[in-house]
Design a binder for these strands. Structure first.
Lengths: 227, 227
DNA sequence: CTTGACGAGTGTACGCCGTACACCTATGGT
DNA sequence: ACCATAGGTGTACGGCGTACACTCGTCAAG
């Protein structure tokens, strides 16, 4: 065994990929707030400043993590039915974001989109164009897919935790929300606890929009904005 | 002038409201990342620890800021046309979030919804119910309004900054995105720069969903999930 | 074989952050 | 006249990102 080999087995040299992988794993395990350069270095058995030989700073680390995660999304399938293609891809993206719950917030916090995100959006737009949507319609459709009309995410309804019986005063103050919660509860089937079936909600919205898009396409919709 | 009055004019005593107002103003002016307890105290002419007599910690400060912002949203109008009522309210919420660009991210970062957010969601659900949507449909509709199907926000397309001519290599790598950008550019009318008309995009999505909801309502849609 | 450049990892230090804790001080009720 | 209390202060601690100067192992050129 040469000294080289001894050294190699003793300590695999760091590189950008190993740093990014460890960062993603650490964020998955302990949450994005607990991800610090110091903790990450510790995890890698290295002094904090060593990381800076592989990423310029923490922002660039986050960029790299985003690209790593977005890279996990399945490539677009091919097929004649554009709705099927888009639907499958988006459900793949959803699975990835569920695996890395911190990712959505980090992606949205980036000042500019990273290359992997751009590539994802580009190929998504390509699927719409291939499906026969005009560039005009595709443009608005892409915006629609990214919108949160309430400004808040859907997870607000998650009343996770041990919970116990729901606060009765809460039902009095927010009667409609209480009603919705009740609906979700005795809705039966796949949801065991009081929570709602997020997967169902997701697909409900997705299909509603996809059908809306298809209708617009068939009608030859165009953004006829009178200035 | 009694000594009381002299003291009062010399220094208005701090209170929770003044702290929250100052925090919102500071976040508006310098961004949420630049909002620290120390900077905020400085702005109020007070030592950092003084703030802790009025808010328990920074998390509670952020909660208070969220409630202050959500409180700016117009109360629901009344009227026979539920789509009109909902539309107006959501556009009001949008105006508020545009005034406080940091707010959406802060709201989503809260672990649980604050009372003001709950009240907002509750009255929104009430508008749907009053409009004749079933509790079941209302439930799914509320989810749909909060979804971001791509996981990313719409602002990704903002190529703000001085920009200059767009990178030609970028067009080669991301042809579809380039096409969309071109569409937005010569789209004319209200948008002067290369950017798109976000207001138009927002209303496009909103109306697409509202029409979809109305169709489901007319058809007596119900979530007939076969277990 | 020597040398010297270079890239990876180290150690120290600085300024910022949130906030625990003990202290002061003016106010207002008894 | 007293003192409890609420609001503001000062000091201090541990954690953060990272600038900067360093050491040390590797390897190509002389």
């Amino acid at each position: 065994m040469t000294p080289q080999e001894a050294t190699r087995t003793q300590r695999i040299p760091l590189n950008r990929d190993r740093v990014l992988r460890a960062a993603v794993a650490l964020a998955d395990a302990t949450g994005i707030d607990a991800l610090s350069m110091r903790r990450l270095a510790q995890e890698l058995g290295v002094v904090p400043m060593a990381l800076y030989k592989h990423v310029a700073n923490k922002e660039e680390l986050l960029d790299g993590m985003v690209d790593a995660v977005v890279g996990e999304i399945d490539p677009p399938a091919s097929g004649p039915d554009w709705q099927r293609v888009v639907r499958g891809r988006i459900l793949s993206a959803r699975r990835v974001l569920l695996r890395h719950p911190w990712a959505a917030r980090v992606i949205e916090s980036r000042t500019g989109p990273t290359p992997a995100v751009l590539a994802y959006l580009d190929s998504m737009a390509g699927s719409f164009r291939d499906g026969g949507l005009s560039a005009d319609l595709t443009h608005h459709v892409m915006h629609a897919m990214g919108s949160r009309l309430l400004g808040f995410s859907q997870e607000l309804f998650d009343t996770s935790g041990p919970s116990g019986p729901p606060d009765p005063g809460l039902a009095a103050r927010y009667p409609y929300i209480a009603e919705l919660a009740a609906t979700a509860a005795h809705d039966g089937g796949s949801t065991v606890g009081g929570g709602c079936d997020d997967q169902f909600e997701f697909e409900f919205t997705l299909d509603l929009l996809l059908d809306g898009f298809e209708n617009l396409r068939r009608q030859g919709w165009t953004s006829a904005r009178k200035a």
